[in-house]
């Protein structure tokens, strides 16, 4: 178990290093960052002075080592647009992103997994067809459309919920549903397939032959076995929820990472964009690592054989 986890942590460290390197060189490939910062009509001399001040005139490899050293100290640099440390800009947005991701995850898991189990257990029934319609809706509605429709209905017409911004739990409801709907569909589909797959196995027939009800067989045996592919989906979906809320955050004026990304790209705030790319990559690396740990907890074949 410990060796398995240590191995996965080692892999995660190597991946992180690869991402840091890739991001550094990709950002430099997009051109001289100094040119993004100077005003129109600056002279070549002024540009050269600024480039020297910022250290962009040094050899690339020297810049790379300096960049790695900075990151290891937790220093993401200073935004040249906002004149603030990038870490504190990011830090002020991350709590909102986590809040929205958590709300969406509650919607996605809370509806998706029970719906998937029910669709598998009551296959071919009215229950499955109704839930399939819900899943289909969640999967096919674009968030900018469902978000605006919800704002119109619950915010404008009924006045039940705030239309945008951050004001406690009520303001979290609509963005969570808009963002969680697609994940809900993924969870429901994956859970349905996984449970159906397990229900056809002999051990389910054997458990029923021992006198277990179908419900007890699902709870005691099928759930754990079907959880393994669902955990894989969960790792990806949580990553997506933390990283991919650009549209929902824009529609609902939610001050998270997605909104920050749009603003930073528009303002050519080079170091903030770089920090967001690093943050998102790191989220996916951590989620995959967590999934690997959860596999080992669930499955003795992984836990005991490594």
């Amino acid at each position: 178990m410990l060796r398995h986890i240590a191995g996965r942590v080692g892999q995660a460290v190597v991946t992180t290093f690869g991402v840091l390197t890739l991001v550094f060189f990709l950002m430099r490939l997009s051109g001289d960052p100094t040119l993004l910062l100077v005003p129109q009509g600056a002279s070549a001399h002024q540009i050269a002075i600024l480039r020297h001040q910022l250290g962009f005139d040094r050899p690339l490899i020297v810049q790379y080592v300096a960049y790695l050293r900075q990151l290891l100290q937790g220093n993401l640099g200073t935004s040249l647009v906002q004149r603030m440390p990038v870490a504190s800009i990011l830090g002020s947005r991350i709590p909102y992103t986590i809040e929205l991701a958590a709300g969406s995850l509650v919607v996605a898991v809370g509806i998706g997994i029970p719906a998937g189990v029910a669709m598998a257990v009551w296959r071919g029934s009215l229950v499955e067809r109704s839930l399939a319609a819900l899943v289909f809706a969640g999967q096919s509605m674009p968030t900018f459309w469902s978000g605006i429709l919800m704002i119109l209905l619950f915010g404008v017409v009924l006045g039940w919920l705030p239309t945008s911004g951050v004001a406690g739990l009520p303001s979290l409801i609509m963005p969570s549903i808009a963002l969680g709907a697609l994940s809900m569909a993924s969870f429901a589909r994956m859970t349905r397939i996984a449970v159906l797959d397990e229900l056809s196995r002999d051990y389910v027939a054997a458990a029923r032959a021992r006198g277990l009800s179908l419900g007890a067989a699902v709870a005691r045996h099928v759930a754990r076995n079907a959880a393994i592919p669902v955990v894989t989906v969960a790792a990806l979906e949580i990553g997506n929820l933390l990283a991919g809320a650009v549209i929902v955050e824009t529609v609902f004026a939610w001050p998270g990472i997605g909104q920050l990304a749009i603003q930073a790209i528009a303002a050519r705030d080079f170091l903030v964009v770089q920090a967001i790319v690093l943050f998102v990559s790191f989220v996916f690396i951590v989620m995959n690592l967590l999934a690997d740990v959860v596999y080992a907890v669930i499955d003795p074949r992984i836990r005991l054989s490594s």
């Binding site: 196995r201 051990y203 006198g211 277990l212 754990r224």
Partner: peptide, 23 residues
């Protein structure tokens, strides 16, 4: 359900498939 496993029970063709691998 009270009869299965208590008064009539069954064994299967592939024993490893008939046991839950995670239990």
């Amino acid at each position: 359900r009270q009869i299965r496993g208590r008064r009539i029970s069954m064994i299967f063709q592939e024993p490893q498939a008939a046991l839950d691998p995670l239990s």
